[in-house]
Design a binder for these strands. Structure first.
Length: 480
RNA sequence: GCCGGCGUAGCUCAGUGGUAGAGCGGAGUCUUCAUAAGGCUAUGGUCGCAAGUCCGAUUCUUGCCGUCGGCACCA
């Protein structure tokens, strides 16, 4: 008689631990959390993965700067990122670290599968090296073939024998994947972008580095002189998190999954990683959702500009749900969104303090001295219709990653209730029927809000049940 | 340079071959149950510019201007 539970897998990208947790990543993981919680509310079994990417040259250098071993450095940063769970009230159940033994072994197994398929080979890799910076440079970093920081120095060409991945082999398969599955990448503009990129032709890329120069990586199977290039190992986390390759059942149950990533990760997620999966003989991902960036006052955030928004400080100042609300409501999910304190506080006061907070307070204020029938039901046909309409739209919107629209839909019920109270002059009539309608509607708001604002949702539902008023979101005074 | 998106009220954006809509902010007003909250009303736009197709274009086509993004080894 048991209906088999549907399984749902969602994963964020793994942030690189060379800097503190960024508000942009907070956006990604909050969006993922909404999706995860929503699927859970549908009765599905959800596996929600996140974690950190810990290998590579930059980490190696950062650790040296801080006079730590790379592992010590990573331990500190892994903790910092895992702290987001509490700060943002996240529901992930797995936090992978690419230095985990299991992940290391999985990455090596993955490598061997690609190798077995004839997709890994050795080739001379010509890297460009600036003696001034003592760093390798990419073409896109160079200006007129010279390092922009040291334009008086010639860029040296260094030959290095690396392993390469036969990316070019998968051009056709990838194009087929995109064509067959028009929602493989959301939004559609990003699918077009990656499809066009793929059509222009793919070049094999290097996937290893010489250990002597950079030891902080996963050793290439069968070659102790080389380590994997960071992202080859990092991408494997999406399957190693599920216990792959040993835990065949879990893998089969949950893979393929939904991946969420920023627009700078489009190629890695929707193309390179998919080619790797094809090479290893594993199913490609189910879907890739691409979100935009967070800007501050319309500008890119950077340390040098001093306009970096720290998610922990934001939460401390305004509360977790307020931060979640702003990022989900103000931003178009797939576009860049702007953060300013002014907009934040405007949203907060208008929607949270004056909207949901005030509605709950005024309703309970009127209702507290009244007895009401225990059974919640709606008599008002218009309200009933409105709730039904919102439920329907909400479902569609959240299924299509339109978080901002889904929240706007919920707020339609709030507006309806405010109007209803005014029109009924409820503070005079104290009509139990109307109060009952409102309780029903507010509880429904609480239920709908659960994936978005879990703490507020619980408070609302509790308030309706206990008839005890609570100040959900204290108003922020304009004068500071 | 090539390819693609966008350009609609102060701001953020919807939208349609028949002379435009929402939310927020601002203004006025009603009300007091509530977090100086809530309701209502009015105001507010030559729908980037120019030409073309059409009885008629903001909506289709072309050109131009502006803007943003992609054009590989950036985790």
């Amino acid at each position: 008689m048991f209906k088999k539970k549907n399984k749902f897998y969602i994963t964020t990208t793994l942030p690189y631990v060379n800097a503190d947790p960024h508000i942009g990543f907070a956006l990604e993981i909050i969006q993922a959390d909404v999706i995860a919680r929503y699927h859970k509310s549908l009765g599905e079994e959800v596996f929600f993965n996140t974690g950190v990417d810990e290998h590579g040259l930059k980490i190696f250098q950062k650790a040296e700067e801080n006079k730590l071993t790379p592992q010590e450095y990573c331990n500190i940063y892994a903790k910092k990122f895992d702290n987001l769970k509490q700060a943002l009230n996240l529901s992930y159940n797995n936090f992978v670290r690419t230095t985990d033994l299991h992940h290391i072994e999985a990455a090596q197994t993955f490598w061997k599968l690609c190798e077995k398929n004839g997709d890994i080979y050795k080739k001379i890799y010509k890297s460009k090296y600036c003696v001034g910076c003592e760093l390798e440079k990419t073409d896109s970093e160079l200006v007129n073939g010279r390092c922009p920081i040291h334009p008086n120095l010639e860029v040296e060409i260094i030959d290095e024998e690396n392993y390469f991945f036969r990316y070019s082999k998968y051009q056709k398969d990838l194009l087929k994947l995109y064509k067959k599955n028009p929602e493989f990448v959301v939004p559609n503009s990003k699918l077009n972008e990656i499809a066009m990129f793929t059509e222009r032709g793919l070049e094999d890329f290097s996937i290893s580095r010489i250990k002597e120069k950079m030891p902080w990586g996963i050793e290439v199977p069968g070659d102790s002189k080389q380590v994997m290039y960071v992202w080859f190992d990092a991408l494997v986390n999406y399957v190693s998190a599920l216990g792959w390759p040993e835990d065949k059942k879990k893998f089969k149950d949950f893979w393929p999954g939904l991946q969420i990533a920023g627009k700078d990760n489009l190629r890695q997620q929707s193309s390179m990683w998919q080619a790797m999966l094809l090479s290893a003989g594993l199913p490609t991902s189910k879907q890739i959702f691409i979100h935009g960036f967070v800007t501050a006052n319309g500008q890119k955030m950077s340390k040098s500009l001093g306009n970096v928004i720290n998610p922990f400080e934001l939460v401390k100042k305004y509360s977790t749900d307020a931060v979640r609300y702003y990022l989900l409501r103000e931003f178009s999910p797939t576009e860049d969104g702007d953060f300013t304190y002014e907009k934040f506080e405007q949203r907060y006061n208008a929607d949270l303090a004056g909207g949901i907070g005030n509605l709950v307070a005024r309703t309970l204020g009127i209702a507290k001295s009244e007895t009401r029938s225990t059974k919640l039901e709606i008599r008002n046909k218009e309200l009933k219709k409105k709730i039904k309409e919102v439920q329907k739209n909400f479902k569609f919107q959240i299924s299509n990653f339109k978080f901002n629209e889904a929240l706007a839909s919920v707020w339609e019920i709030i507006a309806f209730c405010d109007k209803y109270i005014n029109e009924e002059k409820l503070w005079e009539t104290r009509n139990p029927q109307v109060i009952n309608d409102l309780f029903f509607a507010i509880k429904e708001i609480g239920i709908l809000l659960d994936p978005f604002l879990p703490e507020t949702s619980a408070k609302i539902i509790k308030a309706v049940e206990s008839k005890k008023s609570e100040n959900l979101f204290p108003r922020i005074d304009k004068v500071k």
